[in-house]
Simulated assay, not measured.
Amino acid sequence: MFNNMRVVVVVIAAVSLASVAYADEGTATYNTPPYVPSSCDGYQNDGVMIAAASDAIWDNKAACGRSYKVTCTGATNKGVPHPCTGQSVVVRIVDYCPPGCRGTIDLSQEAFSIIANPAAGKVNIQFHQV
C-alpha cells in the first residue's frame, strides 16, 4: 500500500512539473506609446504592461484580456548579441498585431525593456498563458 502511494505522489509531481515547464516559443517585438485605441478596449487606458497578439495567439479576438508570462531566450540578430535581461514580464493582451506582424507578441516598450535591451528590436521568447 505504501509503495502504491509513493508511485501516485511521484506521478502527480511529474505531471505538475511538466505543466510548469511547458511554454510556447516565438518572438517579441515592441511598439511605442500611445497605446490607444486598441482592438480589445477602444480608448480605455490599459496601463503599460500590455501587448498585441499576432495571429498565432489572437484566436479571433478570444485572446483579449488573456495574460501571458514572457521571457527572452536570445537574440534574433547579431546587432545585439546578448539582449536578454534574465527577467520575465506578465502582460495582458489588449490589441491585435495584424498579418505581417514581426513578432508573435508585440509588447509595450515598457514591457519589452524589462525582458530585453530595446536596441535589439526583436528577440526570441518563451511564453505561456497565466
Rank of each mutant, 00 (worst) to 15 (best):
I57N: 10
A63H: 05
A63L: 10
W58Q: 11
P83K: 05
V80H: 00
T71G: 02
K61R: 15
G74S: 01
P81W: 01
G74D: 03
Y68C: 09
W58D: 06
I57K: 13
A62C: 07
K69A: 00
P83M: 03
G74P: 07
A56Q: 14
K78R: 04
N60A: 15
C72G: 02
T85W: 07
V70W: 00
N60C: 10
V80S: 02
T71L: 00
K61S: 14
D59Y: 10
G86W: 04
G79Q: 06
C84G: 10
K78L: 10
R92D: 06
P81D: 00
A53C: 12
D59V: 09
V90G: 01
R92Q: 13
D95N: 15
S54P: 14
N60W: 05
N77V: 07
N60I: 06
A63F: 06
A62D: 09
A75I: 08
R66N: 11
A63R: 09
S67E: 09
V80C: 03
C84R: 12
T71W: 00
T73R: 05
K61Q: 14
N60L: 08
R92L: 04
Y68T: 07
S88C: 00
C84L: 08
I93T: 04
I93L: 06
R66A: 05
A63V: 04
A62N: 14
T85D: 03
G86N: 05
C64N: 15
G65V: 13
P83L: 00
T73Y: 00
A56D: 14
K78S: 13
K69N: 03
D55E: 15
T85S: 13
V90F: 01
V94I: 15
V89A: 03
G79V: 05
Y68W: 12
Q87H: 11
T73E: 00
C72E: 02
K61Y: 14
V89W: 00
G86Y: 11
I93V: 12
